[in-house]
Design a protein around this nucleic acid. Structure first.
Lengths: 104, 104
DNA sequence: AATTAACATAAGTCCATACTTATGCGATTG
DNA sequence: CAATCGCATAAGTATGGACTTATGTTAATT
């Protein structure tokens, strides 16, 4: 059950911060640590969790490992959320935004 | 940071099962336990976590407490997800479904 | 070839959390 | 009003998870 790993991965604030940074543009593990006060092994372990949740994917580049957002994880969340669309209030702003953006 | 409580709440498979049951229709805590092999205190604790995450809300009815899905939690997930819409592949089925349903 | 740099992995520690049993509490029932 | 029912809460336990300090591995650098 991949949903379990996805939600658990996002349940940690440090990992959400890492994910947000990657959403702004792919970068390697060392670059991710900049301004984050986190040890190298801790970062590596967090990236491993995000990778197993399909939220992030890696791309070896020499001795660097470039990380980037993996759309699979996000798509799975969207799919999970879609199951409960009956409960979304019609006027929720976020949904309007989503609609507008998908329209283009 | 409510997002933390939301994702952590959904990170537990038992709580996702409870949420799914409630999505099919509101019911009280005892009814939720049916066919679930879970103790009464455990259920009560799970409901407390879901309630704090705004995923579920309660409604006292005499000595029963009826639980139902709270749209707030789902809306917050949708909002979080919307921040990363740049990464959704255009062809993801779930998104098409979402669009279609919101169109009506 | 030896060193260094980027990253992963191993092992141990500490705290969070999912459970248990026991008990409390308010609302119905007899 | 005493007993029971639906549920919450308290307290203890055991497992999981986020960190630490080594150490390993692979690739570039000299």
């Amino acid at each position: 059950m991949i949903e379990n790993e996805i939600f658990r991965a996002l349940g940690d604030p440090t990992r959400r911060t890492i994910f947000e940074k990657l959403a702004a543009g792919g970068m390697n593990a060392s670059a991710l640590r900049d301004g984050m006060e986190i040890s190298q092994p801790a970062m590596s372990q967090h990236l491993s969790v995000l990778r197993n949740a399909r939220l992030v994917r890696e791309e070896r580049q020499g001795r660097f490992v470039n990380y980037e957002v993996d759309p699979q994880g996000l798509a799975l969340i969207a799919r999970w959320l879609a199951k409960y669309r009956a409960y979304w209030p019609a006027r929720i702003d976020a949904l309007k935004i989503m609609l507008k953006d998908m329209d283009q």
